[in-house]
C-alpha cells in the first residue's frame, strides 16, 4: 500500500496523468486503499475480473463519491482554503468509507469509518517545501492511507453507533480551516516550508 501511494504521488509530482481523488495532492490515498480492497479483502486474492469490478465500483461509489460529495458540499477540498485536512483528510475519510462498505460494513459503520478517519486528520496544515507537491505530501499520503484502513477496521469492530457524527467532523474541519493562518494554506510561508533548508 505504501508502494502504491508513493508511486501515484511521484507520478503526480512528475506532471503525469492522475485522477483527482479528490485532488491531485491527495491522489495516492484512494488508489492505495483500493489496492488493499482488491488484493487483501476476504476472497479478493482469488477474485475473478467480474469480482474485482464489483469491489472497485462499490469502493469508489460508496465511498468515495458519496462521502466526497459531503465534503465538497459542506466544507472544502482545497488546501488553499482549509489546509491539508481538506485534501488528505477528505481523501482518507473517503477511502475509509469505501473500504468499510467493501468489507461488509453497514451504512452506519461506513459513516463511522469516514468520521474516524477525518477526525484524526483535523488541523493538518498545508506547508509544502519549495512550493512543490513532494515534501511532506508524498509520504503523508502513505500515512493517511493506513489511517483509512485502520478507521475502516475500527468501525467494523463497532456496531455503527458513535458519538461524533460525520456532519459534526465536517463542520469542524471547515471551521478549523477558516481559523487557520494563511501561512498554512498552500502558500509555503510557514511550517516545514520555512524550517527546512533547501539544498
Amino acid at each position: 500500500m505504501n508502494l502504491v501511494t508513493l508511486a501515484v504521488n511521484e507520478e503526480n509530482a512528475s506532471g503525469g496523468r492522475v485522477v483527482t481523488a479528490p485532488t491531485n495532492g491527495a491522489a495516492g490515498i484512494i488508489p492505495a486503499v483500493g489496492f488493499y480492497a482488491t488484493h487483501y479483502s476476504p476472497g479478493a486474492s482469488y477474485a475473478k475480473k467480474a469480482d474485482r469490478h464489483r469491489i472497485v465500483t462499490t469502493y469508489l461509489l460508496t465511498a468515495a463519491a458519496a462521502i466526497g460529495v459531503l465534503y465538497k458540499e459542506q466544507a472544502s477540498i482545497s488546501g488553499a482554503e482549509v489546509g491539508c485536512q481538506g485534501e488528505v483528510g477528505s481523501a482518507s475519510s473517503m477511502a475509509a468509507a469505501g473500504l468499510c462498505e467493501v468489507l461488509g460494513g453497514s451504512p452506519e459503520q461506513v459513516e463511522n469509518a469516514a468520521e474516524i478517519a477525518m477526525e484524526h486528520n483535523l488541523g493538518l496544515t498545508c506547508d509544502p517545501i519549495s512550493w512543490l507537491v513532494q515534501v511532506p505530501c508524498i509520504e503523508r499520503n502513505a500515512i493517511a492511507a493506513t489511517k483509512a484502513v485502520n478507521a475502516a477496521r475500527m468501525a467494523l469492530m463497532g456496531d455503527g453507533v458513535h458519538r461524533v457524527s460525520l456532519d459534526d467532523v465536517i463542520t469542524t474541519m471547515r471551521e478549523t480551516g477558516k481559523d487557520m493562518s494563511h501561512k498554512y494554506k498552500e502558500t509555503a510561508l510557514g511550517g516545514l516550508a520555512v524550517n527546512v533548508v533547501e539544498c
Binding site: G15, T20, A27
Partner: peptide, 14 residues
C-alpha cells in the same frame, strides 16, 4: 462522482 474524480495532469488539481 465524475466531477470529484476527474483525470488530469499533475502536480496539483487546484
Amino acid at each position: 462522482l465524475f466531477d470529484l474524480f476527474s483525470v488530469g495532469v499533475g502536480p496539483s488539481s487546484s
